[in-house]
Amino acid sequence: MDAIVKRIILQVRKGDHNAFGELVELYKDRVFALSYRMLGNRQEAEDVAQEAFIRAYTNIDRYQIDRKFSTWLYRIATNLSIDRMRKKKPDYYLDAEVAGTDGLTMYSQVSADEQLPEDEVVSLEAQDGIHRAILSLPAKYRSAITLKYIQELSLKEISEILDLPIGTVKTRIHRGREALRKKLQEQ
């Protein structure tokens, strides 16, 4: 896998668009899942995921070929997602009533934005609680939790992606998990 990715990247560096298309195919689902869990909205997640790939393409010369490509790509996607989250309304307003509606909270807005194929709806209902709980976490816990559980990465990889010491990553995962536990108990 790594050897294939490296061969493709060398082609991309020569300016080959099609080789980059292969890279997008390999990683698009994981990058999209990452930005979706961070942003909670399919349209925004798609925008961010696409921008992550475009940034990866334009900065491909800065990628160090001896390091893991996915780490570098996830780092771009995570940073873009966090930037986007900060530009949006802070998450803790999700519970607030939306002005001019009768009892509608931002939660209902979040789910109304999602257009999902029918087969996804069932599993989403079951997962709705945890998904909303993740979205209620502050950005720094949300990114650590998403990378650990959605991407199933090691603490070392997460520390490289977030550019933080392993100890800090651990603390964020512990606090994030603790917050999620409480949210799920409340639901």
């Binding site: 195919e25 698009k28 689902d29 995921a49 997962q127 939790i145 799920l184």
Partner: peptide
């Protein structure tokens, strides 16, 4: 432990149709 199992059982997601061509 329950929280963790919820997190781990999140459905795998697929990028929307036409994702790659939009990037290209």
């Amino acid at each position: 432990k329950k929280t963790e199992s919820f997190l781990l059982s999140s459905p795998s997601m697929e990028a929307p149709d036409g994702f790659t061509s939009k990037v290209m």
